[in-house]
Amino acid sequence: MSAEHYPEIPQLTAEEIKRRNARSRALGLFLGALVILFFVVTIAKLGGNVLNRPL
């Protein structure tokens, strides 16, 4: 198969790369915040019972 059968990939401008990186950083922060939220909510739901179990 020759190269012309593959879809052409557009070259990104410096501005587009900058925007993509900024979006990736925001997504990373969002996922990090979600992890913290799930952890804190889990602890709040479990409450004091988290240690209340037979050994």
Partner: peptide, 13 residues
Amino acid sequence: LAAEPVAPSSSAL
């Protein structure tokens, strides 16, 4: 399968 990316023309862009 690992073809080199084709440098796009401005119209293709």
